[in-house]
């Protein structure tokens, strides 16, 4: 049944998924060709919007009492839906991050994913995005689609400000050296906690 929910998410956002594929391929190419490894814009813009819009589309469709009740009456309720939605987000992040890494490899001379902690940074970004979208899901279940989407605008503003600070000041904004095993362990724990939180939030809404 979890597969049924996942199939529904894919089917109901099919148009947006096509746009996401085109966006990742075109925007990824243009951004990386133009800005090389310019960290914040590329790391943020490609995966963020690849998930933000199709996920927003699904949340918007489910932001009515009628649809909520319709879903709540279905078997495997909250747990199945949250896990399916997490897999959906995960798939979009894997795709967009994959395209981003592939372009870096193809377009940036001498780029080596396995050197200078680059892989670790990719993992950090990936887990950070997954955590953010799970938080967005919780906000959606706790409040509404509009609140959830507003968190995206706040995230955009924060990244934009950080990027400006990095560009126009001498402050060096870069990620510290991290141990990949620790990052993955902490990330998995955080994500598991957020999934549990999302299931609880889904169960509690309109009960």
């Amino acid at each position: 049944m979890m597969i049924g929910y996942l199939k529904k998410d894919i089917r109901f956002s099919a148009n947006w998924l096509i746009i996401v594929v085109v966006y990742c391929i075109v925007a990824g190419f243009l951004l990386i060709k133009e800005r090389g490894e310019s960290l914040y814009f590329i790391e943020f813009l490609i995966p963020f919007f690849a998930v933000y819009f199709p996920l927003g589309r699904l949340m918007n469709a489910e932001d009515s009492k009628d649809t909520r009740d319709f879903l709540r009456r279905m078997p495997q309720g909250a747990c199945g839906r949250v896990i399916a939605r997490t897999v959906y987000i995960l798939a979009l992040l894997v795709f967009s991050s994959g395209v981003k890494i592939l372009y870096k490899y193809l377009l940036i001379e001498g780029y080596d994913l396995m050197s200078e902690g680059k892989l670790e940074k990719e993992v950090v970004f990936f887990l950070a995005f997954l955590s953010y979208f799970l938080i967005q899901m919780i906000v959606f279940y706790k409040t509404s689609y509009h609140f959830a989407q507003n968190t995206g605008l706040i995230a955009c503003a924060v990244v934009f400000i950080i990027a400006l600070i990095g560009k126009y000041t001498s402050i060096n904004i870069s990620l510290p050296e991290v141990n990949i095993a620790v990052v993955i362990a902490v990330g998995v724990l955080v994500i598991a906690g957020l999934i549990v939180g999302a299931v609880k939030a889904e169960r509690s809404r309109s009960a």
Binding site: G4, R11, F12, A61, S64, D66, F70
Partner: peptide, 19 residues
């Protein structure tokens, strides 16, 4: 007013998958 942007065929396919 349930998934009003979807076609009946898509919604029934979803319900069929679940049940």
């Amino acid at each position: 007013n349930i998934y009003s942007d979807q076609k009946m065929s898509a919604l029934s396919a979803f319900v069929k998958d679940i049940y």
